[in-house]
Simulated scan of single mutants.
Amino acid sequence: MATQLPVFMLIFVISCLGFISLCKPILGFLKWVWVMFLGPPKNLKHHYGSWAIVTGCTDGIGKALAFQLASKSLSLALVGRNPLKLAATADAIREKFGAQVETRNVVIDLAKTSGEEISKTVEDPIEGLDIGVLVNNAGLAYEGARFLHEVDSEVAESIIKVNIVAATWITKAVVPIMAKKKKGAIVNVGSGSYGGFCSYPLYTIYAATKA
């Protein structure tokens, strides 16, 4: 009986530790389910701030995200290289959501601008704004699959600058605003199909910079 008790206690302790170790991922999963599917949506304006910055906002995912943020009554700083497309996007947002959504256009070619210059170009038009959300969506890839040595050096440099360097320096320009008020959200748009979850032969630079 004396030898059985310590064995029982050992099994009990191990079982408790195992149960405790299982609780953390289970609770994490339940929290994720609540946040993603069951809980009420966040009021972005209240939780983060009244302005959002979206890069690469004139087409595709970036444009859709800009409209979604505008639908939550966030004003938008729109970052892109084509002034005509930026103006068209801003006009479409104002036409749909009215005066409740302000817009500011930041014209910059991220592939041809140095890091510090990117920060300065973004800092000036957002000075004094209550920036709450930053979406680094701008992305660049080469057309058509090709081996690394076949990629033009200028194209490779542009992809790295837009996908990594620009996102870094824009974030650097915005973080002090968020840090000062101790709240904010930064979304870096990657690519699940190209680099996030699997390798992508013949698109290696894009996959690496968007992983």
Score class of each variant (00 low, 15 high):
Ile160Gly: 02
Leu84Glu: 15
Lys24Phe: 12
Ser21Asn: 04
Leu148Phe: 11
Asp91His: 13
Leu44Ile: 12
Ser21His: 08
Gly128Thr: 08
Ala179Phe: 02
Leu110Gln: 09
Thr58Trp: 06
Ala167Pro: 01
Thr3Leu: 03
Val133Pro: 01
Thr3Lys: 05
Gly18Leu: 05
Leu134Tyr: 06
Val7His: 15
Lys96Cys: 01
Val106His: 01
Met1Asn: 07
Ile53Cys: 12
Ser15Gln: 04
Asp124Asn: 13
Trp51Ser: 03
Ala167Gly: 14
Val133Trp: 03
Val189Arg: 07
Tyr48Trp: 10
Ala173Phe: 05
Glu117Leu: 09
Ala52Val: 01
Gly190Met: 00
Ala211Ser: 08
Lys42Tyr: 13
Ile20Gln: 07
Leu65Phe: 13
Ala66Met: 13
Val101Ala: 00
Val189Cys: 00
Phe29Ile: 14
Arg81Met: 15
Val175Glu: 01
Ala208Thr: 07
Val165Ile: 12
Asp152Gly: 09
Ser158Asp: 07
Arg146Met: 13
Ala52Gly: 13
Asp130Asn: 09
Ile61Leu: 15
Phe8Thr: 10
Ala166His: 08
Ala173Gln: 08
Leu84Pro: 05
Ile53Lys: 03
Ala145Leu: 14
Lys210Asp: 08
Val133Met: 00
Trp32Cys: 14
Ser75Leu: 02
Pro6Asp: 00
Val79His: 10
Lys180Asp: 08
Tyr48Met: 04
Gly56Trp: 03
Gly184His: 12
Ser73His: 10
Gly28Val: 13
Lys63Gly: 04
Pro6Phe: 10
Glu117Asn: 13
Glu123Tyr: 08
Lys180Ser: 11
Lys63Asp: 01
Glu150Thr: 02
Asp109Leu: 04
Thr3Tyr: 06
Ser191Pro: 04
Ser119Lys: 08
Cys57Phe: 02
Gly190Leu: 05
Lys72Tyr: 12
Pro40Gly: 09
Val135Trp: 14
Ala64Thr: 09
Lys182Ala: 06
Ala99Phe: 14
Val7Cys: 03
Gly28Gln: 15
Asn82Asp: 15
Leu76Ala: 02
Lys161Thr: 15
Gly62Asn: 06
Phe37Ala: 03
Leu84Gln: 15
Gly132Glu: 07
Ser15Lys: 00
Gly49Phe: 09
Trp34Met: 00
